[in-house]
């Protein structure tokens, strides 16, 4: 049995925002509910009112000039299936497919995954390396922020009360670029990441100089992080296995993992080296055009 609560199904986004405003800090947005319902069951979240944001038009994936707009209420199944995502952001398709199991992905949304803000959040590293921007909407204002500025700590985000994460804008990647996502958990499905990693590589016209590289790691710090020292090391250099190995070492040093029931901090640091090396290599292959999928 869940604790009793009010339930509101608004007919549009404005009405949803009004409902959140009216019911105050006890009101919570419900999208997929795969995180919220178990939290209510465990009494770690006791919302006085649930405001349903399904069916408000926040579940579309649309291509616009220069970027793709992903509605926050898109499920991971929809993302994994989308032709646009598959073609343009394989890294995001990989992250979407790594979450939960079929049943979870049919309900869980990308906006919910971000808003829950657990450090092992699988969608964040993919969105970090894609340099996505999030649009947050309340009755008073609409603001767009880089995804990296969204998280404040475990289960803490910059979302103000009565503010909704509405959509995610992902810029179209430049030519000669590629990205990839990898996750290690205790098993292959229905598990939180021990470490997850995403990387993107953009090559110069010569096909061997790294013009730009981004590396993101999850479950190794209070929030998902960018390994900026490792990125700086790669930039402007000629691609080589040695270089990538060194970058992976540096990236691992930028983390601050904890030991918990899933793994020790030492193991996580080791995993970072392996996953960053693999993710960079995979991204590089895609940048070369050898492997689009």
């Amino acid at each position: 049995m869940l604790p009793r609560t009010l339930y509101i199904r608004p007919s549009d986004l404005t009405k949803a925002l009004e409902a959140l405003e009216e019911h105050g800090p006890g009101a919570r947005v419900i999208a997929g509910g795969t995180d919220l319902i178990p939290s209510m069951r465990a009494r770690t979240q006791l919302p006085s009112c649930l405001v349903d944001i399904q069916g408000l038009g926040l579940d579309t994936i649309t291509r616009t000039d220069g970027f793709v707009r992903i509605g926050a209420a898109c499920t991971f199944s929809e993302l994994a299936r989308s032709g646009i995502i598959r073609e343009m952001f394989p890294v995001l398709r990989e992250a979407a497919s790594a979450i939960g199991a079929v049943q979870t992905r049919n309900l869980a949304t990308i906006g919910g995954n971000l808003s829950s803000a657990v450090p092992s959040c699988d969608s964040a590293p993919a969105l970090y390396v894609l340099k996505a921007r999030l649009t947050l909407i309340s009755l008073r204002q609409q603001r767009a922020i880089p995804v990296e500025e969204f998280f404040q700590g475990p289960r803490r985000t910059v979302l103000a009360p009565a503010e909704i994460l509405a959509w995610i804008d992902v810029p179209v990647p430049p030519d000669r670029s590629g990205s990839a996502f990898l996750k290690i958990g205790r098993r292959k499905a229905l598990t939180l990441a021990i470490v997850n990693a995403a990387a993107s590589v953009c090559l110069a016209k010569d096909g061997s100089t790294v013009e730009d590289a981004t590396i993101s790691l999850g479950a190794v710090a209070p929030t998902p992080l960018r390994a900026r020292k490792a990125e700086a090391l790669l930039k402007g250099c000629t691609w080589s296995e040695e270089l990538v190995k060194e970058a992976a070492w540096v990236a691992s040093g930028e983390t601050s993992p904890i030991s918990d029931i899933r793994a020790s901090a030492d193991y996580r640091r080791e995993l970072c080296k392996v996953l960053v090396r693999r993710a960079l290599t995979h991204a590089w292959k895609r940048a070369l055009g050898g492997d689009q999928r």
Partner: peptide
């Protein structure tokens, strides 16, 4: 939502009925 024993199909797609409010 971890064991799948409560799986039902919602519009043909498998979901965990223990994670779904009936009202939705």
């Amino acid at each position: 939502g971890e064991c799948g024993a409560c799986t039902v199909l919602l519009d043909g797609k498998p979901v965990n009925s223990c994670l779904l409010l009936a009202i939705r």
